[in-house]
Each structure stands twice: as structure tokens, then as C-alpha cells.
């Protein structure tokens, strides 16, 4: 039994939204400020007083000065509520499953920082998952690592490595096959071309939130129980760090004399529809054994696109065999 009522899920979702809004607000302020600043400094003659110019450079200045203490408190509260809600249990009977799987990854990608051509190829992938089911909520954590050796039509080689952590939360209703929920996807993708002597590694990282849907159907074939499920999620809000305009490192690092925090802030882009996109489809067929464990076959398809300093998109599919065991 947990100590929080089930409605803490609303806090969790609310805090995610609040965090995202916070990031957008801060990023917009930064973008607006720098754009105005650029515009003002490039004006041939500015017939505005120095205070006026200062106001033009940072139209939010007064507002943010006034709000700064409230804003900081709001920021801290958001993080606190988010963390609290994330780690507390709900008050219903639960089952816990741990599963692991391995299989093949088919990867196709295009990174304009290297080439306009598509690189594609096969690799290996491993997955570790945890699933918690309660009466009114189902949570899935999925960690995956994969590596693929890709090449383009001119046989230039590129090695792609991906580490991802996906969190899915669904709220099933009785006798309904579909359930809705939300997701948080985090991924680090590294690409390496050995044929280029400089700046040959490029990396991007993103973390984003968005809605998710699950379809689940129990099947019986020759007295054997199967479960077919298909999950889909789309990421709408978050942030990402792409490689720099030229360099392998994000733009705030390497060639900038920044500390970690300033470098991070200078490097992040807002993840929002239009600027970045991530979506996945995840059908899975599981044979449920009498022990409560199960063996499954799953296909995980994911598409990601990020418009950083250079556009990068990838389309990957993983075929995995998995074994799931009931741990509680």
C-alpha cells in the first residue's frame, strides 16, 4: 500500500506540463532577448534613449526582475512536486514484472552535419524493462541500448549507438481495450564516421513528454493464453541538445569558455512540434505461461527528427524476443 491516493498522477502530469512551460518561457525569453539585441545592434542609427534601448534589448527585464523570487520558488516547487509524484506508490494491489530482451535493430538515418545521404544498416539491440500494473494504472519503464553499423549508397560507413529510457503511464478502464496515458522519452544518439578526420562524432540527447495510447487484447489459441498489445506515443514538449554547427560537442561547450550550467543552457533547444519530433509504435505478442511469466515477440519502431544547427532524422525498428518474469 502506498501513502498517496491515485490522484497524484494528476500532480505528476501537471508538474510535467509546468516544467515544460517553464522551459518554453525561459527559452522564449532568451530567444526574444537575443533577437531584439541583434536587431538593435545592427540598426544603423537608433534614435532611442539608452534606457529605451535597454528596454528594447530585454523587454521582459522589468517583469522578470519583479518576478524573479516568485519564479525561482515556482521552479523549485515544480521540480519538487514532479520528483515526489514520480517516486511514490499508489494505493492499490499491484503486480510487478521485469523483462529483458534482445534482437536486431534496423537503423536508417540522415545527419546533414555529415551528408544529405541516408545511412542504413543492421545492428544489435538489448532491452531491460519493468512493468507495474495496478487496477487503475500501468507503468512501464524500458531501457534499451543498441548499436548499428550503417553505410550509404557510396559505402561510406557510419556507426550509430543509441541509449534510450522510455517511461509510459496508462490508465486502463474496465472492459476497454484502449487506454490512454502519457509518456516521457529520453534518448542519447551517437554517430561516428571514421572516414572523416575531424569532427567525426556527432551526438544528440533529448528528453520530452507527450501522450501515449495502448491497445491490449487477451487471446486464447488451443488453450494457450496470449496477450497482444500495441503501444504508441508521440513526444510534444521537452528539450534537446544537438551537436554544434560544426563541432561534435553541443554549441555551448568545447569552443566556448562556459561552465557546465551556462554551456547546457546555451546548447539546449526547445523540443516542440515543428522543431523536433519523436514518435513510436510498439506492437507486442506475448505467450503467457502458467507460472505467471511470459515469452514475447515485439517490434519497436521509432522515428525521430531534430532541427538543431544541422537537421538530423532517424527511423529505426527493433525486432526483439523477450522474457518477462513476475517479480511480485
Amino acid at each position: 500500500m502506498g501513502i498517496f491516493p491515485d490522484r497524484c498522477q494528476y500532480f505528476k502530469f501537471g508538474s510535467c506540463v509546468a516544467l515544460s512551460i517553464l522551459i518554453i518561457a525561459l527559452k522564449m525569453k532568451s530567444t526574444w532577448t537575443s533577437a531584439i539585441s541583434r536587431a538593435v545592434t545592427t540598426l544603423p542609427s537608433t534614435k532611442v534613449s539608452s534606457a529605451g534601448v535597454e528596454k528594447l534589448r530585454d523587454p521582459f527585464k522589468g517583469v522578470f526582475l519583479h518576478l524573479t523570487p516568485h519564479f525561482e520558488r515556482f521552479k523549485l516547487r515544480c521540480v519538487y512536486v514532479f520528483l515526489l509524484a514520480h517516486f511514490l506508490n499508489h494505493g492499490y494491489a499491484q503486480t510487478h514484472n521485469l523483462w529483458f530482451g534482445g534482437g536486431l535493430r534496423s537503423e536508417a538515418l540522415r545527419d546533414m552535419g555529415y551528408s544529405p545521404l541516408v545511412f542504413s544498416g543492421l545492428g544489435l539491440s538489448g532491452m531491460l524493462g519493468y512493468e507495474k500494473k495496478a487496477e487503475s494504472k500501468e507503468t512501464i519503464w524500458m531501457l534499451n541500448y543498441s548499436q548499428a553499423a550503417t553505410s550509404n549508397i557510396f559505402e561510406r560507413k557510419l556507426r550509430a549507438t543509441n541509449v534510450g529510457l522510455l517511461n509510459l503511464n496508462f490508465y486502463p478502464r474496465a472492459n476497454k481495450s484502449f487506454s490512454w496515458g502519457w509518456s516521457n522519452n529520453n534518448a542519447l544518439h551517437h554517430r561516428y564516421i571514421s572516414g572523416f578526420d575531424n569532427f567525426n562524432g556527432r551526438t544528440d540527447v533529448f528528453t520530452a513528454f507527450g501522450p501515449a495510447v495502448q491497445f491490449k487484447k487477451q487471446l486464447q489459441v488451443k488453450e494457450r493464453n496470449f496477450v497482444f498489445s500495441a503501444v504508441s506515443h508521440i513526444q510534444l514538449l521537452g528539450f534537446y541538445l544537438p551537436s554544434g554547427y560544426v563541432s561534435s560537442l553541443p554549441s555551448g561547450f568545447g569552443y566556448e569558455p562556459n561552465g557546465a550550467l551556462k554551456g547546457f543552457w546555451q546548447s539546449i533547444y526547445l523540443f516542440y512540434p515543428g522543431g523536433a519530433f519523436n514518435a513510436a509504435v510498439w506492437p507486442k505478442l506475448e505467450w503467457q505461461l502458467k507460472t505467471g511469466n511470459s515469452i514475447g515477440l515485439q517490434y519497436f519502431y521509432e522515428y525521430t527528427r531534430m532541427q538543431g544547427a544541422q537537421m538530423h532524422e532517424r527511423s529505426t525498428g527493433m525486432w526483439l524476443l523477450n522474457f518477462s518474469m513476475k517479480i511480485k
Binding site: S106, E107, A108, L109, R110, L117, V118, S120, N152, I153, L219, V221, F228, V281, P283, L285, Y299, Y301, Y303, E313, R314, S315, T316, G317, W319
Partner: peptide
């Protein structure tokens, strides 16, 4: 029948990874 539909759906998705990115003609 259900499994046939499933298989067709799966096989429809697989091998499409590259085609989503357009061609390198």
C-alpha cells in the same frame, strides 16, 4: 485469422525504416 492480420501488420511495418527518410537517388 487474427494472427494473419497481425503478421500482415507487422510485415507491413518492417523494412520501412529506410523508406521513411526518402531516397538517396
Amino acid at each position: 485469422m487474427f494472427f494473419v492480420v497481425l503478421l500482415l501488420t507487422f510485415s507491413g511495418i518492417i523494412s520501412c525504416e529506410k523508406s521513411f527518410l526518402g531516397s538517396s537517388s
